[in-house]
Write a protein that binds this DNA or RNA. Structure first.
Lengths: 134, 134
DNA sequence: CTCGCTGCAAACCTTTTGCAGTAGG
DNA sequence: CCTACTGCAAAAGGTTTGCAGCGAG
């Protein structure tokens, strides 16, 4: 799970500059489990820092994803979604409300195909969440 | 797996019109396992029917996906990829060459979360394919 | 001071839509 | 004939890039 203070410190150590927009973006991600799009992160950031641009949010999210501090999900075909928890885990995607729920790690990951060096496994359950079953 | 003749017959039965572009698109998908994007399908179609437009290819692919004759994959964040095999199955995605390989069905699908009505499960293995391990 | 970061605007790419003409049934 | 389908062109989003100026270190 993304911890703003830790990532911030790590960035500082590597000579990246800690600016007000970055601080705000880091705070917006801190402890987040909602898998927001870049636009949703921007909206959240702008509640307190109205002058931050989309460009800055997007490039910062990409930067964090490249560093492995967050994950970029391809679950939503319309737009990238960012996962503040970079540790690989499964997701449950509600087909009705669109919510993406994190799942606790399962013992016994599925085995990959022969002749293929697996670096990570991605499991998505699609269906109806508790609230949307009627 | 997509069978052009069958889908074509089914469309005709339901009153959809069988045009030359559709015939060509159906043929391009027939027996395909390469998970092409709409632009790749267009290129393939144009080898024999140079006047077919992107619009027609894209709307036809969407139409087939809505009917369940093909599947629209969200694996590639940059663009939609279409799977001529609409029966749910796992995929192995090579991080180097980008190839998407179909996997045979596994016994014992992973169990979904409690309180969630699962309609389908999507498993992706990411890593290096046989050819790209080196 | 120096450059890395920012914000703006414009470019880019994929996908979607409006519309007049064409052709399948 | 009727109207669904086609191709074009333009719009609509999301993402990426060029650039001048600011400001963290």
């Amino acid at each position: 799970m993304f911890r703003a203070a830790e990532v911030l410190e790590e960035c500082r150590r590597e000579g990246l500059r800690i600016t007000a927009p970055r601080r705000a973006i880091f705070e917006a991600l801190d402890g987040d489990a909602s898998h927001p799009s870049a636009w949703e992160v921007l909206a959240r950031v702008r509640r307190r820092h109205p002058r931050v641009s989309f460009t800055t949010v997007y490039t910062t999210l990409e930067m964090l994803a490249r560093r492995g501090a967050i994950a970029k999900l391809a679950i939503d075909p319309e737009r990238a979604r960012f996962d503040a928890n970079p540790v690989p885990h499964d997701h449950a995607v509600c087909e009705r409300c669109g919510r993406i729920e994190d799942l606790p790690p399962r013992g016994g990951r599925p085995r990959g195909p022969r002749g293929f060096r697996v670096s990570r496994v991605h499991v998505e359950f699609h269906g109806l969440c508790r609230g949307c079953r009627g």
